[in-house]
């Protein structure tokens, strides 16, 4: 039983009035794993998550969350999942503690309200009205509502969108804590650093299909064979006879020269030989591994322009 995935999706398909939004995706999430769905707006992230949460009916495919079919959306299912929806949904005129207490009454074995407020850093705001909270505080309150029922699986749909860096760091800290407690977390995001910082595994969703999935290291290995060289040199003074192994040069702003190669060792030898011969100083030479962002942009870039409203 313990080896069964907490969440299992196979051949999931969803269309709205005949327009496909999710086109046959499959993935499994192990218990205790933090799994991220990454993609541009309109890629089908929220559709997928809302099907897993029980809000939407799938058009075709199989979905299983903790042994339940979310399509039936029964009460027992809702008792063991926790939700943080994409947009804020709080009663502005209730206080923080009233809000959390109200939700705690919905669940058979809720966490202690005071303790949870301490965990999310809202203990000192407990008697303030929700409308007086900052965006980051409201988001942390919503995370508290997602956790109050002590769920096994937590869904976080773009939990840090619209937050300033401090607030985002606070939310990340909370999500890491969840993972440490052994919760299964499903996260959707269009922030690369967020996914790199939090997720054990991820799937990149573009136009309703998974175009890459695995750990961050897997993706870097699979899609990111290229290393990036850059150095400073005024472009108009650059010698013409460049070694062919360097490929095509890119000359960015402020006289930075850069290029990407598949065989960095070979390129480095040729580059240093060439530079020595022509007296190019290679100021601020850096060689960097590709980031998840580079991979993401190369996978999504071509189709990003067609992105519609996110759902």
């Amino acid at each position: 039983m313990h080896d069964d995935p907490a969440v299992s999706v196979s051949g999931l398909f969803k269309s709205y009035a005949g327009v496909p939004a999710v086109r046959g995706i499959s993935f499994d999430i192990a218990p205790g794993e933090t799994f991220a769905l990454l993609g541009p707006n309109g890629a089908g992230k929220t559709s997928t998550i809302e099907i897993l949460e029980g809000y939407r009916k799938r058009t075709a495919g199989h979905v299983n969350v903790l042994g339940f079919d979310p399509g039936e959306n029964c009460r027992e299912f809702r008792e063991c999942i926790g939700l943080v929806l994409q947009s804020t949904a709080l009663e502005p005129e209730l206080t923080v503690i009233e809000t959390v207490t109200a939700f705690s009454q919905f669940y058979p074995e809720p966490l202690r309200v005071e303790g949870l407020l301490k965990t999310v850093g809202l203990a000192d705001r407990r008697d303030n009205r929700v409308r007086t909270l900052s965006g980051g505080q409201q988001r942390r309150l919503e995370i508290a509502l997602g956790l109050i029922g002590n769920p096994e699986v937590v869904f976080l749909d773009e939990p840090t969108t619209g937050l300033d860096p401090d607030a985002r760091a606070g939310v990340w800290h909370l999500i890491r804590k969840l993972s440490q407690k052994g919760k299964t977390v499903i996260l959707s995001s269009h922030h690369m650093e967020e996914v790199e910082a939090l997720a054990h595994r991820l799937a990149i969703l573009v136009a309703g299909k998974i175009c890459a999935s695995g750990t961050v290291a897997d993706l870097l290995h699979e899609f990111g064979g290229h290393s990036r060289f850059s150095f400073w040199w005024p472009f108009d003074q650059l010698p013409y006879n460049l070694p062919p192994a360097l490929g095509s040069l890119h000359h960015g702003h402020d006289n930075w020269v850069s290029f990407s190669v598949a065989e960095p060792g070979k390129a480095l030898v040729q580059l240093t030989g060439w530079a020595h011969h022509y007296g190019v100083n290679l100021d601020s030479l850096t060689i960097t591994k590709p980031t998840l962002e580079d991979i993401y942009l190369s996978l999504t870039g071509a189709r990003q322009k067609s992105g519609g409203p996110d759902r």
């Binding site: 009460r75 999942i81 929806l85 949904a89």
Partner: peptide, 13 residues
Amino acid sequence: QGILKRIRGTPLP
């Protein structure tokens, strides 16, 4: 405000 949707995602009948 999304409050009804949020309530619908809890075990409250």
